[in-house]
């Protein structure tokens, strides 16, 4: 953490208790703690039944910074999902961007786009799409500038002036 460290015990931390091991069927012998596993052996677009987000699609792709959060229903149903769906819901117990999900799960961004949208339709995830154009919003730009100035350099000095 370099800046803006959230106070410990934030609402996000408390919102979702750790799944209780006894309460779910455990179809996989290995505990589900490894955050990164080898890339899926399945060709990516088989997972999405050939659907592709972005690329040649006419639908504008979901922005990469879109924030994705699991719903409580999604978390409750975690162990009923197939691997990829479960992994996505599991990592989204705290808000994550689409890009982060893809990177953490080592899956193609466009596959994540399709699967996350499916999970949204099923009520398992909430997708918060960016609103408006922050690039043209002076108040957002000022907040980013102020936030970044407070980031210390490697010797701890801030850019305050």
């Amino acid at each position: 953490m370099t800046a803006g460290e959230a106070p410990s015990g934030s609402a996000a931390d408390d919102a979702y208790p750790e799944p209780c091991p006894g309460s779910y069927p455990q179809p996989h012998p290995e505990p589900h703690t490894e955050p990164v596993r080898p890339a899926s052996a399945v060709r990516p677009f088989l997972l999405t039944a050939g659907r592709v987000a972005g690329g040649e699609s006419l639908v504008p792709p979901i922005p990469v910074e879109t924030q994705v959060v699991a719903t409580s229903g999604g978390i409750a149903a975690l162990d009923t999902f197939a691997f990829e769906h479960r992994d996505i819901v599991a990592v989204c117990q705290e808000p994550l961007s689409l890009a982060e999900i893809a990177a953490k799960l080592r899956m193609h961004l466009n596959v994540i786009r399709v699967l996350a949208d499916d999970l949204r339709v099923d009520g398992r995830l909430t997708l918060h799409l960016p609103q408006g154009n922050p690039a043209r919003d002076a108040s957002v730009l000022r907040r980013v500038i102020d936030g970044l100035r407070a980031v210390p350099d490697s010797r701890g000095a801030r850019r305050d002036y």
Binding site: D14, A15, Q67, V69, A70, T71, E94, P95, S97, P130
Partner: peptide, 15 residues
């Protein structure tokens, strides 16, 4: 503290 069910953690504004 528990958030009410179905109120997911509020995400930050992403830029």
């Amino acid at each position: 503290a528990r958030l009410p069910d179905d109120v997911p953690a509020r995400p930050p504004l992403p830029v």
